[in-house]
Design a protein around this nucleic acid. Sequence first.
DNA 1: TTGTACGCGTTATCAA
DNA 2: TTGATAACGCGTACAA
Lengths: 344, 344
Amino acid sequence: MKLGQATIKDIARELNVSSSTVSRALKDYPGISFETKKKVKDLAEKLNYRPNAIALSLRKSKSFTIGVIIPEVVHFFFSTVISGIEEVAFKNGYNVILCQTNEKLEREINCVETMLSNQIDGLLVSYSKETTDFSHFINLIDMEIPVVFFDRIPNIKNAVNVTVNDFSGGYQATKHLIDQGYRRIAHLAGPSNLAISKKRKEGYLAALSDSGISIDENLIVECPSANEKESFEICLRLFKDPINRPDAIFAHHDIVAAGAMMAIKSLGLRIPEDIGVVGFSNWQFASMIDPPLTSVLQPGIQIGEKATKILLEMIQNKDINHQEISNVVLDTELLIRKSSVKNY
Amino acid sequence: MKLGQATIKDIARELNVSSSTVSRALKDYPGISFETKKKVKDLAEKLNYRPNAIALSLRKSKSFTIGVIIPEVVHFFFSTVISGIEEVAFKNGYNVILCQTNEKLEREINCVETMLSNQIDGLLVSYSKETTDFSHFINLIDMEIPVVFFDRIPNIKNAVNVTVNDFSGGYQATKHLIDQGYRRIAHLAGPSNLAISKKRKEGYLAALSDSGISIDENLIVECPSANEKESFEICLRLFKDPINRPDAIFAHHDIVAAGAMMAIKSLGLRIPEDIGVVGFSNWQFASMIDPPLTSVLQPGIQIGEKATKILLEMIQNKDINHQEISNVVLDTELLIRKSSVKNY
DNA sequence: TTGTACGCGTTATCAA
DNA sequence: TTGATAACGCGTACAA
């Protein structure tokens, strides 16, 4: 018995018909006698025949595969996005091939190469923190390969972007802290080359402005690595001066917020009585820490679904009007928990 | 077909040589004049030539792709495993195609079909909670397609399994609680059809036994869904009776532990003073919750790496001795934090 | 040193 | 109603 899978040729040989007949019979093409059709289908069943997707790809110049490039899988938000992507792709008969960059530009370029070699029909990307030159993506777009950016979106002509309303998320978060009576609200900002960092910060600034609170540059600190350790240390410094210290923190995301909370606790300060805290993304742990963390919900699954739906549309209908879909912005929602409400 | 993807034929035509010459020149085959080689390579560079992986797959009957089937991406442990898988696969020039089952058997079978159609060279699997019949996997093994199971491993002849020592993890956790002076230790067990649930429970039982503590069946409760809500409710019931209530919890995993912690707090009990808690898997949030949760480290990245290395070995060397690698067990490590140490 | 021919699995096209 | 052929892109045995 031959290794591997039965092919159309195997069926044809065994039944003494041509492979085209088998192909047509299997696909219920008109003009095949009922008899032949039955013979073929029965044998196919018996041999456990399965069409070879690789051969199909070659024949049709279409791989039914979409590529996904993300910074890292081990990141709650990205894992939810992947989940949404996989879900929609699977339902539409597309495969997902996955590549993580570990936030390295070199690796990212390498991933794009791999994707190209593998003839992906389209690509979903959230680029790395190191990426400032987008030519490897622009090349793809120039080759007319559909590309959709999500979450971290570049400023590229003809790019299609899916993201949440980071500005409004930042605004909501900050406004909420103001409404709760906090006045010296610090912002732990994200890496400055990411548009999301800029947007969240702008939302923060706008909320302060709108409430007539003057902006104190000392209260805005960038967290380039955006991990809990970095944020812990930054906060220790930030809280050193008891006079000028902030009374609330709006963090770029929940991990940063968690680091801040640890710093606050380690200084013997109370959350939310002394310091209020709001995060971003609503990581899984947000509701489980103590006190539960108020956070801006960033609907990862929906982002993944939406981005994939758009990508599939672009793949299936090349003449789609890019202008209309070039910037999809999903709504955020503030999930209020104890970390920011004094009388919760 | 994507515009601008140059093929060997394009190069051949332009240079007035045969495509075999181009093919050979590109791969530095002997017997090609330096001159031709240079011409070909230069033009390839200029045209941005990239070998078509699909054509190569067909030609070589090898896809350089491995499939990964997991219950869900949005699960910290699995996301770490995927990360390890992707890392090793990428380094070895293999692609990763991903399929999640959402814990559904039907979907799982469907995923296997997809993988087969796509001619994966090998498969990594952690099966769904619903799966009790493994014939869809056994078929693969019978077809001599390399399959490696990780974390959730079946009892199948010739299967290759990679897992952590769940028994010893359960034992460590329980022993630690005993050493801390806890005596009425409850176990919130995982879904009963998973070997990992059984193993962790056996470790728990053995530790009690070895310490001469009698086993109270009322203190062992299964959590079939293993989410925080379920565990919260189970714990409320478990703690209703102030006389017979447990003084510690060993949970199947950290999410279950987190649910338990919420229940404990909501009843006004203190952790670890009144109730000690130990989880499993060391989810990312374990160190961030209050009090930080003692947990059994389950090295997901290493599991992913190890499983992939073994799979690639099986793919590249069909004559490998399965007996020797049929059961790889990685060590767990107990990370002791405040949730289980009264005088931390 | 280079070219020809074939096959990997499939299907569209034309011919019978 | 069915068959033969070519083509998708590539590599390679064989021929020149």
